[in-house]
Amino acid sequence: MHLDLRGRRVLVVGAGSVAARKVERLVPAGAAVTVVAPTAVPAIAERDDVRWHRRPYQQGEVAGYRLAFTCTGASEVDAQVFADGEASGVWVNSADDIDHCSFILPAVARRGPLSVSICTEGTTPALASWLRGRFQRELDDGTAELARLLSASRAELRAATGSSEHPGWQEALDDGLLDAVRAGNNAWAQQRLRTALGLDSAADGTGQAHTAVLP
């Protein structure tokens, strides 16, 4: 599940290096981040895009947020934040404390609009991180460009037919679209995709898809 955090209030309890890594992912996602901790590492204390309350967590305060992370390393604090989250319907992630998590963070490989999430249900984060590295190497500029082409064709298909559902997506992707884009042959890839989706025939009203010229 991918969450839209833009403008949503997110609480981070603790302000050490682990909390700083959470903040580094939350702020670019558009979350309105509040950190609660008596002290903070410079990576948090020196940010002007995060609100920092210099005090311990107060029982029940998680109820004012949509999502919460506790990164204190103190099990009693994790347990309190988790219990408060359960009572108020707020999802809580406790760093390295699976028993006090209502959601688990996956390892994520990203490139442009693409993301691949790897989760081991909190049992082996090292394996998830290792696999992320392998997927990250696969997500090159070609995959990001292919995503752009697919997005444009999806919008065109929806405008032409009222739906983006079509069996031709898989057919086209299995026919070497990524290799073509990686080789710089975007024109062929785009035409192959349009043909598979029936967009040429939808555009000219002939009922016949145009034949793509192979590279």
Rank of each mutant, 00 (worst) to 15 (best):
A95H: 11
D96G: 01
D96M: 01
D97C: 13
D97R: 11
I98W: 11
H100K: 04
H100M: 04
C101R: 02
S102L: 04
F103V: 10
F103E: 12
I104T: 05
L105F: 08
L105G: 03
A107T: 04
A107Q: 07
V108E: 05
V108D: 03
R111Q: 15
R111C: 08
G112P: 05
G112K: 07
S115N: 15
V116Y: 09
S117H: 14
I118S: 07
C119Y: 08
G122T: 01
T124A: 15
P125I: 03
A126C: 02
A126N: 01
L127M: 02
S129N: 13
W130N: 07
R132K: 01
G133F: 01
G133P: 04
R134N: 00
F135I: 01
Q136K: 06
E138T: 06
L139E: 01
L139C: 02
D140M: 06
T143L: 08
A144E: 14
A147H: 08
A147R: 05
R148D: 12
L150C: 15
L150N: 04
L150W: 00
S151R: 04
S151F: 09
R154Y: 10
R154A: 09
A155T: 12
E156G: 02
A159I: 08
A160L: 09
A160G: 03
A160R: 12
T161E: 15
S163Q: 10
S163Y: 05
E165W: 11
H166W: 11
P167I: 11
W169C: 09
W169T: 10
Q170V: 12
Q170H: 13
D174S: 15
G176K: 14
G176N: 12
L177F: 10
L177I: 08
L178N: 10
L178W: 05
L178S: 13
D179T: 07
D179N: 07
A180T: 05
A183S: 08
G184V: 05
N185V: 07
N185M: 10
N186R: 14
A187G: 03
A187L: 11
A187P: 03
W188I: 00
Q190T: 14
Q191P: 02
R192M: 04
R192E: 05
R192A: 13
R194S: 07
R194G: 10
T195M: 09
T195L: 01
L197F: 03
G198C: 09
L199P: 00
D200Y: 09
A202R: 10
A203Q: 10
A203C: 03
D204A: 03
G205V: 02
G205F: 05
T206A: 07
T206S: 15
G207P: 06
Q208E: 14
Q208H: 15
Q208V: 12
A209M: 03
A209P: 06
H210L: 14
T211A: 12
V213T: 13
L214Q: 12
